[in-house]
Nucleic acid binder design. Sequence first.
DNA 1: TTAGGGTTAG
Length: 482
Amino acid sequence: MMKPILFSKSHLPLVHARFIISGQIHDPFLAGNLLESLLRSAPIAHSAARAFVSSFPRRSAFIYNTLLHAYLIDNLPSRALHLFDEMLHCNAVPNKHTFPLLLKALAQTRQLHCGVSLHSMIIKLGFSSDQFVHASLIHFYGSLGRVLDARRVFNENSGSGVSAFTALLSGYVKSGNLSSAREVFDGMPERNLVSWSAMISGYVQFGAPGEALVLFWEMMGMNLRPTYSILASILVAAAELGALPEGKWVHGFLERSRMRLSSNLKTSLVHMYAKCGDLTSAKQTFERSRDRNVDLWNAMIGGLGLHGRGREASVLFSDMVADGIWPDDMTFVCLLSAYSHSGMVSDGRECFESMSRVYKIEPKEEHYSCMIDLLGRFGFLMEAIHLIEIMPMRPSDGIWGSLFTSCGTYGDIVLGEALGKHLIEMEPYEPGCYVRLANLYASSGRWKDALSVRAAMKSRGVELEPGCSLIEVDGVVHDFLL
DNA sequence: TTAGGGTTAG
């Protein structure tokens, strides 16, 4: 195998000029070396790379592939696809290295039809059994929600490699089918850290944090070294379960292994400590961190809010702005929810209003939802309705639901009855709506109406599932059915 | 001749 000749960054302009003068620029191999030297010294220098390529009279597939790769690294999938058009136009023949790059660009831009056409081209050119192309095709179909097509492509190759298995597994995860994902995982002839990561994060994303923890300990039992992303998934799982010892174990592991804590991991740690009720450790982690990005501030503001410390959350927000960190959407969700948990109605109003006026962030549905919840919780029902009326988007069932709950709290039977009926009409198989409407009737002595709501619920076959609460005692997570 | 794959939390 011939090694590429790489030129140092400082020599590049000179070498480029010399190639042009001597005519060596006509040699696609040397021109390719020049391009690769540039991109190795500055991987995101796509515009300089583009200029280089424009000066190459003969452009090989290698040259196009290298530039396609640079566009993808710089998160410019559309430019990569335009470059492919140019490649075909210039009669450069794509090779097996071209297709994984294009399939990634098409997955990112979610272009199913173009991907299907490209799939035909791959078959015609005879690249479909290449393991890189094969895994990329499965990933393409899986990430566009076409898991059956992903499975069909997977089945076409008998000796699928670990990447093809992982891509299929991840396709099932994306479609929410965790049991099929697990079947693929269990059937893998070999696994690597990427496959473990895909399965563990799949469990976390789809609300199965307990399974994620079990799988994590199984992985650790095999003496595999967890990656950052696996540890971050485990921190989320621990936060969901309120499993403080597991969360602390991850923190200890990171410190023992002297792994550098990225901002993302610090954010996950703060979130985990706050959700597990250890606000002191959350604060310590936050305060020890020197380079605080907006996500880390948000995690701490949200953590304080979760514990009803709205006043401290408000002070922290001011510190953040004073520190030169510009708030984002999530900052206001955390702040509004902190005010809601602390009964700080006027602060909430002011915050909601200043979002767009001062910080130029237009409130999204989640901000309206927080604000309506805050107003409703503290009895400002008419103001909450006014906000629903003026919000630019269609109110979600969650918004109507939180207002309905407030009607029950404040005994507003007329509004509550109208909302309850509306919600049942919208979601006839949601037991909570029936129960809350029946309770509302019962609280005002309208027993007949309460019974008829219960009867309607029964006749439609809607059953109330017991609620579940989790608590961790001495390292064991217990669940309670309510 | 050089290069291309699957995972990534809050």
